[in-house]
Amino acid sequence: MKKYVMSSLLALSFAVAGTSLAGDEFEAAWQAADDKRKEAASMKSEWRDTKKMLDKAKQVAEKGDMDAAMTLVAMAHEQAADGIAQAEREAVMWITRVPR
């Protein structure tokens, strides 16, 4: 009996540690994506839906669907990175469109 309680306690603590690990991982990924978004914004190249995706990811994570939340964070991160790459291309290209 004692053994059984012990092991189930152990299992429980693992489970708790497990979710908070997923939670930590999510927080870190979310923060990294949001930092990228801010970097894109500082280059005046943030996209329309990136912040919406990050807000949505928080909501979904609170409901416990970590897979869906991480997918949204990954999409937002990619959007921010694409916005930055776009700004870097455009820093050179924009002037070629000016009528002369």
């Binding site: 190249s45 996209w47 329309r48 776009q86 455009e90 924009w94 469109r97 009528p99």
Partner: peptide, 20 residues
């Protein structure tokens, strides 16, 4: 001026792409 000719957004348009 740079703002006007710079492509932005997921669809990658500058103002001038549409209005020029």
């Amino acid at each position: 001026k740079q703002f006007y000719y710079t492509k932005r957004g997921q669809l990658n348009f500058s103002c001038f792409d549409c209005h020029g």
